[in-house]
Design a protein around this nucleic acid. Sequence first.
DNA 1: GAATTCAACTGTGTATACAGAAAGTTGCTA
DNA 2: TAGCAACTTTCTGTATACACAGTTGAATTC
Lengths: 218, 218
Amino acid sequence: MAVPARASNRAYLALRGEIIDWELPPGSILGEVEQASRLGVSRTPVREALARLTADGLVAAQAGRGLVVTDISIDNIRELFEVREALEMQAARLAARRGDSAVFAALEREFVAVPDLLERDDPARHAYYGLVQRFDEAMDDAAANTYLVTALRSLRTHLVRVRRLAKDNPARLSAAASEHLLIVRAVVSGDADLAAHATHVHLHHALASALGSTEPAP
Amino acid sequence: MAVPARASNRAYLALRGEIIDWELPPGSILGEVEQASRLGVSRTPVREALARLTADGLVAAQAGRGLVVTDISIDNIRELFEVREALEMQAARLAARRGDSAVFAALEREFVAVPDLLERDDPARHAYYGLVQRFDEAMDDAAANTYLVTALRSLRTHLVRVRRLAKDNPARLSAAASEHLLIVRAVVSGDADLAAHATHVHLHHALASALGSTEPAP
DNA sequence: GAATTCAACTGTGTATACAGAAAGTTGCTA
DNA sequence: TAGCAACTTTCTGTATACACAGTTGAATTC
């Protein structure tokens, strides 16, 4: 870092990380003075951090109680996926029209190799999730639409919380990789409709998996 | 208002209004001290207002220059409509599935009457734009998706700026009303595909109109 | 005459102090 | 014992003071 990171930014990243990692579970009350002393900064940067988190939708003002970490329910997951479907299908269309084939051809080779990757038994699946992240970034880049990318980033913040709630199993990861592969191949060949529909299929399965793994045993 | 509106909120609404109304044109530099003295509040609420505007994408930090009102270009309009297409088509689908038919039946009657409305020669077309606003609100309500509505609201902030840039002509308004009418009828009859595709058609024409009226005469 | 350096000023980032409002608690009364 | 009221405490919202960084301008030197 070229400059000492600003205190408000440090406070924002710290609180955001703790909320996403469920260290601050939904319902936690975030008082300004308490967080200021805990994070070792004054109230001013904490205020700014909390304002950004409110804009992100990670915390909300509750009457009289101050700011509270927002809840994530099953209904929230369905709503998130409804928006995600709209935005990612559009991103896939745009990427197929505008994307750099070479970039996605490289990703295609990586997704082909995922079965080998998963056999290596990386407990946290860091390599796989890193690949998915690069896929997302390539799509953002190829879509070349500031407003779309902004909306997707906001959405992903919430999706990360869901991911912590619903653990993926190895079979699902393998299936997801082949779904991603189809999307990537559609982008490489410039087939916008196929890219969009393959994204739809992928999200359908992802939602079913997320809902399935969160439902309690009867 | 039960309580005296908070100074930070007043500052936010004031600055937001001035940016949307082009009183603060793109490129305007917003210094904290200057705005604080102009709005009659201290720097703290102004800071909060500027932070919210930055999150909205209406202002952006420019290296060394402080905060600057963001620009709206032709490319921005295209990008906005790409996102709008994705979100509003999804909203139309959801509204067709979940919407209250009675509400949209009432809107249908209003849109049928728009030609009469436009003959009354209201210079600012307040009645018409009010109807469109009620249409948007009914769609938001029917879509019943917090994240979708949040994204749409953010988008509309930018679209209002475009609307000030590109004036609608009476012929366009009349055509837009019949496009809206088709969407509303599709929602009433619960036809999700038709609602989505009618929205697509509407946005296609709206974009063509916006781009046409902004292009300088050759 | 041009380039480089130094100084001053403007503007943001942070801390803290103060005021007002709201919620919880405690005590009194019916 | 239950309910109401008043008080206390703690919170947020706002203002202001202070420090540091970046930019701009001028002056001096090559």
